[in-house]
């Protein structure tokens, strides 16, 4: 295995594009090293991105949002007051990944590129309409977060392409987001079900909403029907029950070692309502 330490994204891209065998980019390494140890993925070329200037920075964008460098760890996210104030749901999703030790290393980009449908940080990003800045041999492009995973362990990124940053839009007034997951223990598990809700209020009514669900389908789902269920409502009981029904209807879960399909279908409805209530309160709505 060759270990590379490029100092620019262009250099990183060039190394990857020229590599013949299995290539992995290394940011936090909390998935790459596990796969390496298990022997499931032994890269021929491992490209460490942490020495590229700016990769550990969280910077405001011209549009009023945030640009999160590819190597920003979960712990860094949690310490950033501005980001936590704007996008608490995104931050709490990332903060649920692993332990404090893992938080010291793990990154949003890594969680996204691992391609897991149970990735805790991704539903929040999807609900937030986050975008991804990609560098490749053909230059830079931007994609929506939900378009990156191509299935378990796979992404749509072309050979030589890599993520440079994750971009969150401006929070704007009267907005709130939240992410909840279900795990059997209190920590250290992979999500059995995850639900993120991002919404904006007009008065006490939901004016905009995005709902994303994790671990209930082969990919993380953006569920417009679930968002529609609460649009125009004050998130009252009937809106919540419609939300739960829409989430359950959208779920296409399987039974595996972490939980049953029936459980996931039901609990996704429970969690999406709990998350919606938190997001609603964070947006300034009265508690329901």
């Amino acid at each position: 295995m060759n270990y590379h330490r490029p100092t620019s994204f262009e250099q990183a891209s060039a190394i990857a594009a020229a590599a013949a065998g299995v290539t992995r980019f290394l940011a936090g390494g909390t998935d790459v090293l596990v796969q390496l140890r298990a022997g499931t993925v032994t890269p021929d070329d491992l490209i460490d991105l942490k020495h590229i200037p700016g990769v550990k920075e969280i910077a405001p964008t011209a549009e009023g949002g945030w640009r999160i460098g590819v190597a920003v760890s979960g712990a860094d996210l949690g310490r950033h007051a501005g980001l936590c104030a704007d996008w608490p749901g995104v931050v709490e999703g990332m903060r649920l990944v692993g332990s404090i030790q893992v938080q010291g290393r793990a990154t949003l980009a890594g969680n996204l590129c691992n391609g897991s449908a149970a990735a805790d940080s991704v539903p929040g990003l999807v609900a937030a309409a986050a975008r991804v800045s990609v560098v490749g041999p053909q230059g830079r492009r931007e994609l929506a977060v939900e378009d990156i995973p191509a299935g378990p362990g796979r992404t749509v990124l072309a050979p030589g392409e890599l993520i440079a940053a994750i971009i969150l839009p401006a929070r704007g007034a009267r907005g709130g987001d939240a992410y909840l997951r279900f795990i059997p223990r209190t920590e250290m598990d992979i999500a059995v079900v995850g639900a993120a809700v991002n919404l904006r209020l007009d008065g006490d009514r939901v004016a905009e909403a995005r709902v994303a669900l994790g671990a209930v389908a082969p990919r993380i789902l953006l569920v417009p029907e679930a968002a529609d269920a609460i649009l125009g409502t004050p998130l009252d009981a009937s809106a919540l029950s419609a939300l739960a029904a829409a989430a359950t209807a959208a779920a296409r879960p399987i039974t595996d070692r972490r939980g049953t399909a029936e459980f996931r279908r039901e609990v996704v409805g429970v969690l999406v309502c709990r998350a919606a209530r938190i997001a609603y309160q964070r947006a300034g709505g009265a508690a329901t």
Partner: peptide, 16 residues
């Protein structure tokens, strides 16, 4: 065996 790692063999952690 589907859960040969501590990740999925869920022993109690301190917060449990």
């Amino acid at each position: 065996l589907q859960n040969p790692l501590f990740l999925d063999y869920r022993m109690p952690v301190a917060s449990d």
